[in-house]
């Protein structure tokens, strides 16, 4: 009888160990737009269910951001575990992957995948658009900055950026192009509104936009409202590049809105990867 009990116990343990444990990963489409300074990291969140090997830094050999055309390699700085979330009745844990990149030029990778390689496997998760640019000292500094938020089709969106710019050089800077560091966000350059000072975060952008060019006078200052357009992408933080002839003026990324890593707009882009 004792042997039978031991046998049943061993069989139970064997079945338990051999039973396939479901593992899955959820990634989200985001617009990553960062101006990188030394040792500045980018955090990519993933929700992971089960004891996946990628939650242990020791298992990870390489990390890359890739699409069909581009590849950039990075260094994994840290993995931070966060709170538990439920997706379709399954419990997931949020993990935040802190990544470092050597960035020497503006790089835009649309429809990017976060690729993680271990000794025996390579995993790829769609993370959205990944855009980085290096910061360099330049003659324009920002003394005021905020987003203009209007309700569009019942949804509150960033529809413009309000900047206070200071020219620290002895020459006028005639800005002929303004670029948001993202493939999907366009600046309505002929709709700038320059010199406004009574704008608040919730001003109606249509009250202000006009036709103007942007000139930042030598050792002078100017306010500018920059209308932006985009479609279907969540956007809360981005860097800006001003161009004047051959000169480039990089403005550090600014977090205009903070809704945490998983706002509703992001949750709706969830892509689930099941692993046997």
């Amino acid at each position: 009888m004792k042997k039978i009990i031991i046998l049943i116990g061993l069989v139970t343990i064997a079945i338990f160990l051999a039973w396939p444990t479901t593992k899955s990963v959820i990634s989200f489409r985001h617009t990553y737009s960062r101006v990188l300074r030394d040792e500045e990291s980018i955090t990519i969140p993933l929700m992971i269910r089960g004891n996946h090997e990628i939650i242990d830094m020791n298992n990870i050999q390489t990390i890359r951001i890739v699409n069909d055309d581009y590849v950039i390699s990075g260094t994994l700085q840290e993995i931070v575990s966060g709170d538990e979330y439920y997706y379709q009745n399954d419990k997931y844990v949020a993990y935040y992957f802190g990544l470092l990149f050597d960035c020497f030029e503006k790089t835009i990778i649309d429809n990017a995948y976060f690729e993680i390689s271990t000794d025996s496997n390579t995993y790829s998760y769609l993370i959205g658009d990944f855009c980085i640019a290096p910061y360099f000292e330049n003659d324009i500094s920002v003394f005021e900055e905020m987003a203009i938020l209007n309700t569009v089709n019942g949804e509150e969106k960033i529809v413009g950026i309000y900047l206070g710019l200071e020219n620290n050089s002895i020459n006028d800077i005639n800005v002929d192009d303004i670029e948001i560091i993202s493939p999907n966000i366009k600046v309505e350059l002929n709709e700038l509104s320059v010199g406004e000072s009574d704008i608040s975060m919730f001003s109606s952008i249509s009250d202000y936009t006009g036709n103007d060019t942007l000139k930042v006078p030598s050792e002078g200052r100017v306010h500018v409202l920059i209308p932006i357009t985009y479609d279907g992408f969540y956007l809360n933080r981005f860097g800006i590049i001003l161009s004047a002839g051959d000169e480039r003026y990089v403005i550090d990324d600014f977090m205009f809105v903070n809704e945490g890593y998983f706002p509703d707009q992001i949750l709706s882009t969830a892509k689930v990867y099941s692993i046997d």
């Binding site: 300074r37 955090t43 931070v80 966060g82 538990e84 920002v142 200071e166 809704e259 890593y261 998983f262």
Partner: peptide
């Protein structure tokens, strides 16, 4: 559950 916020570094020039 939304207690973890984005990391953010800013270098700001102050006249």
């Amino acid at each position: 559950s939304e207690s973890i916020s984005e990391k953010w570094n800013l270098d700001i020039d102050i006249p």
